[in-house]
């Protein structure tokens, strides 16, 4: 069973994500802030990480950067954000994110993207969802 770590401070969002992912037969863990996300990932390296960008005790970019240098194997990560600050998407791309979703995202599209990333398929540009 593939392990997915959700780092998200909004409990309603992380819960809805967890329901979907568990239903799709993933093992799901939730961390509500940057620090516990980092700790959890170190203790029990996941196969994929869903990262909110604005987080208590740090931010999603910081978590991604730290994990890339700390974990022995490259772990794919997908950013989810409600922020529209300019440059976020570019920064995510630079960090090597597998995908970038603007909230509110479409749950089934997110699920499909996760499936493709875990299957090791390279995402075509079209698969990166845009805010409509």
């Amino acid at each position: 069973m593939k392990k997915i770590l959700i780092v998200e401070d909004d409990q309603a969002i992380s819960q809805s994500l967890a329901i979907r992912l568990k239903n799709a037969s993933y093992e799901v863990n939730v961390a509500p802030d940057a620090l516990s996300g980092l700790e959890f990932a170190m203790r029990k390296p996941p196969d994929l990480i869903l990262l909110d960008i604005s987080l208590p005790a740090g931010n999603g970019f910081g978590v991604a950067e730290r994990l890339q240098s700390l974990l022995s194997t490259a772990t794919p990560f997908i950013f989810l954000t409600a922020s529209q600050k300019p440059g976020l998407r570019q920064k995510a791309k630079k960090l090597g994110a597998a995908a970038f979703f603007q909230k509110p995202y479409d749950g089934s599209e997110l699920l499909e993207t996760i499936r493709l990333v875990l299957a090791g398929e390279r995402l075509d540009e079209e698969c990166q969802v845009y805010a409509i």
Partner: peptide, 26 residues
């Protein structure tokens, strides 16, 4: 702007997601 945008979208995201989850029969 960023805060308002963030605060409006975050609850909307979970509202929409829970509706979808129920609709998808989960």
């Amino acid at each position: 702007y960023h805060t308002v945008s963030h605060e409006l979208k975050t609850p909307l995201t979970s509202a929409r997601e829970f509706v979808s989850i129920v609709m998808d029969g989960l």
